[in-house]
Design a protein around this nucleic acid. Structure first.
Length: 408
RNA sequence: GCGGGCAUCGCCAAGCGGUUAAGGCCUCGGAUUGUGGUUCCGAUAUACGUGGGUUCGAAUCCCACUGUCCGCCCCA
């Protein structure tokens, strides 16, 4: 019996690795221009980091974490990387550096969920976190960078959705209004919504349950509840963000029901959705989390960030075909072949040689699949100290010296 | 956690109760002894997810399990 990769995990094979590099390379360029620095944090963290950070009413923390105990310590495979980044920001006193601190990361995340299209148990995110700026201009920059990356990757049919969840004060009021308005219908709502009612009533508006939806529509609840009464500050912040996005020519749709399932979001939240994915259609999600640094033991520090699902991105992109190396040595003398290979590699060229002294026809066939040029090194060449070089794209063949080979 | 679909060689597949279980791709070898990508020939030496059952007989019918995919939920 062959052991298979665990459910919801995938091997990334050599034939697809270039697809990953493409995303990473384009992202790195963009991050560099924006002066965003890379950070790498552990793949597992103290369980309490996620309980406190992500929020213990969230699905992620409630039922999706890979948690294990090792010598009396409860550890958890990171389900997302904002909490870990904030932890590192605090642990290494990054708040004492000049602000804003702008960080990016990429790596595997783990959530115990039922796998389906665009959803795995181990998946990869690339993300950005920016600390220390209250002004909406950084929310705009954050979204701008995400959009730039998606555009550079050549993605089409994307929709940027935005919303504001308000800060703690206005949200508290809004929650009361929500609860008052929904209370009469509570018994008709689904179980999830019933438990959300106390813990996190904001999420009720997000419910996709048919009966809940019916109730909402019959009583026009959604429209009544759409407008969160943002306090002055939050209202201005949101208006400012929209103004920036308009000026930056970033098209967006306001989605008042965009309520994220992570507890730490405040004010701005956004998602970028693709129409070419299945039901898991968010390629990018993020928002502002002004309270998180404080929740995790720091002083009040505003922050914004987003994350993208790399395999979702990949599934939207054309596959890149494998690259060829420069040279392939065709020879019936393996010793000379490997020596030439060594010399060429030392000069910085990709080179392979044929391990079997088989017919040149076979070797050439392999060469054509592997390389741009075949270097034929037979008795005659060795005796007279030259190389027969064949361009495998156009079949041109020349007799060259070693130095001439280097100019190819 | 709840629904639904699917499981035939490395990949794509035909087959729908009695076949030596097609075919294509890929890989490997060969077509008079140093030249590929086209063509031709051949090979991959018991491939029907697993375990039960029905039947004279099952890849084809039934059951269970497992895997996978698609939805719900949630999210990236």
């Amino acid at each position: 019996m062959i052991i298979k990769a665990p459910k919801g995990t995938k091997d990334i094979l050599p034939s697809e690795i270039n697809d990953w590099y493409r995303i990473e390379n384009i992202a790195k360029e963009i991050f560099k221009k924006a002066n965003i620095k890379e950070i790498r944090t552990p793949i597992f963290e103290d369980t309490s980091l996620f309980e406190r950070g992500v929020g213990d009413t969230t699905d992620i923390v409630n039922k999706e974490m890979y948690t294990f105990i090792k010598s009396d310590r409860s550890l958890t495979l990171r389900p997302e990387n904002t909490a870990g980044t904030v932890r590192a920001y605090l642990e290494h006193n990054l708040y004492r550096e000049s602000q804003p601190v702008k960080l990016w990361y990429k790596g595997p995340m783990f959530r115990y969920e039922r796998p389906q299209a665009g959803r795995q148990r181990q998946f990869h995110q690339i993300g950005v976190e920016m600390f220390g700026v209250q002004d909406a201009s950084i929310d705009a920059e954050c979204i701008m960078i995400a959009v730039e990356l998606l555009n550079k990757l050549g993605l089409k049919d994307l929709t940027v959705e935005i919303n504001s969840l308000g800060c703690n004060t206005c949200r508290k009021e809004y929650k009361e209004v929500l609860k008052k308005t929904i209370a009469p219908f509570l018994s008709g709502l689904c179980q999830d919504c019933q438990s959300r009612f106390e813990k996190n009533p904001l999420r009720i508006l997000d419910c996709k349950n048919e009966e809940c939806n019916k109730l909402f529509e019959e009583n026009n609840l959604r429209n009544k509840l759409t407008t969160i009464n943002l306090c002055d500050e939050c209202g201005t912040h949101y208006e400012k963000l929209k103004k920036y996005l308009n000026e930056l020519n970033i098209k967006y749709v306001e989605n008042p029901f965009l309520v994220r399932g992570l507890d730490y979001y405040t004010k701005t939240v956004f998602e970028i959705k693709s129409n070419n994915l299945g039901s898991q259609n968010a390629v990018c999600g993020g928002g502002r989390y002004d309270g998180l640094v404080e929740t995790l033991g720091g002083s009040h520090t505003p922050a914004v960030g987003w994350a993208m699902g790399m395999e979702r991105l990949n599934s939207l992109l054309d596959k890149i075909s494998g690259e060829k190396i420069k040279f392939y040595v065709v020879s019936d003398n393996q010793l000379e072949a490997v020596k030439l290979t060594q010399k060429l590699r030392e000069q910085g060229f990709g080179c392979e040689f044929d391990y079997n002294s088989r017919k040149f026809a076979k070797q050439l066939e392999k060469a054509a699949k592997t390389a741009e040029y075949a270097i034929i090194l037979g008795e005659e060449e060795i005796k007279n100290n030259f190389y027969t070089v064949k361009n495998l794209n156009n079949s041109e063949q020349k007799k060259l010296s070693f130095d001439e080979v280097l100019t190819l």
